[in-house]
């Protein structure tokens, strides 16, 4: 009976907690330019756009645990980062301002499925364009080009690049391109590959010493390193090219063309640059503007 009343007490106190609490965020964030929503947008022959229109809001798939790219503030629920701003830009040009966006956080492994299932209208979250994925979905962009790199603990000097990974435990996300590359090129033994569902889980394991390196695109890793510079460092030798695209339903060419137009305009009129400067660029790194790959 004692155990039961203890459990009941715990539940009650857990519920009571909702009554009182701090508000706001422990850290402040920089502001990116707000996008004006366009009016009277039509996208001829796009079932996705018709669906968005009928619903009155956009459902965007994003990451929630990647500082600098797609990050959800746990204390306010606000999303921020480069990918998020790109998602907002696209929504605005489709005629929906920031208040009419619903964000759905979807980890890498569930991305294709979320787009196929119609769970999200489009996906913006460190989504590398490749041919295999193009069989299931389609991509607009690229809107950014990253490269695969390694994140290690600050005091680790034994890892200096991809060729020094042998015998080290390497973590990345289930079904992601970086971990497939590690596997295909035999950068480390199969038994040393750890695949988890999110990068932040990998970073937690790196922090605790269960893995020796986290590998994925430098943009993602820089975000984690910038967040805790006294713990982690990025090696800085990229060994691949990862063009990031906006994931869209496969058969919706009309919407893909429209999104490409939006991106092209943003690249040309300086919007892209100002978004970059307000998010990823804050670390001081510069980036090349990507060239769109229309198909």
């Amino acid at each position: 009976m004692k155990l039961r009343s203890l459990a009941a007490g715990l539940l009650v106190s857990a519920l009571a907690l909702t009554g009182c609490g701090k508000e706001g965020s422990p850290t402040g964030g920089g502001q990116a330019p707000t996008q004006e929503a366009a009016s009277d947008v039509t996208v001829e022959g796009s079932p996705t756009f018709d669906k968005i229109k009928a619903r009155g809001k956009v459902v965007v798939g994003v990451k929630e645990d990647q500082p600098g790219l797609g990050y959800k503030d746990p204390t306010t629920g606000e999303f921020s980062g480069f990918d998020i701003e790109i998602a907002r830009l696209v929504a605005a040009k489709l005629g929906f301002d920031a208040t009419k966006i619903e964000y759905k956080a979807i980890p890498s492994a569930g991305r294709e499925q979320a787009i196929i299932n119609g769970d999200v209208d489009y996906y913006v979250g460190t989504y590398t364009i490749n041919d295999k994925r193009k069989e299931q979905i389609s991509f607009a962009g690229p809107y950014f080009v990253a490269g695969q790199d390694l994140l290690v603990r600050k005091d680790d000097t034994s890892i200096t690049g991809p060729e020094t990974l042998k015998g080290k435990k390497v973590c990345s996300v289930t079904g992601s391109t970086p971990i497939q590359r590690v596997r295909d090129q035999g950068l480390t033994e199969a038994g040393n590959i750890v695949e988890l569902q999110t990068y932040s889980q990998c970073v937690t394991q790196l922090d605790q010493g269960q893995v020796d390196a986290v590998t994925t695109d430098d943009a993602i890793l820089k975000g984690y390193a910038a967040q805790e510079p006294d713990k982690f460092k990025v090696i800085g030798k990229t060994f691949s090219e990862e063009p990031y695209g906006i994931g869209l339903p496969k058969d919706d060419k009309a919407l893909r063309d429209k999104v490409n137009d939006i991106l092209q305009t943003a690249l040309d009129d300086g919007t892209w640059q100002s978004i970059y400067d307000a998010t990823l660029g804050k670390s001081g790194a510069t980036a090349e503007k990507p060239t769109l790959d229309r198909y």
Partner: peptide
């Protein structure tokens, strides 16, 4: 899982596991 990966809170995986387990058990 999400909150347990937040660096600002020091990746509070174990505190969260304890709280979530308590909720399920209750």
């Amino acid at each position: 899982r999400y909150l347990g990966g937040i660096a600002e809170f020091g990746r509070p995986l174990i505190p969260l596991t304890i709280v979530v387990a308590a909720l399920y058990i209750a």
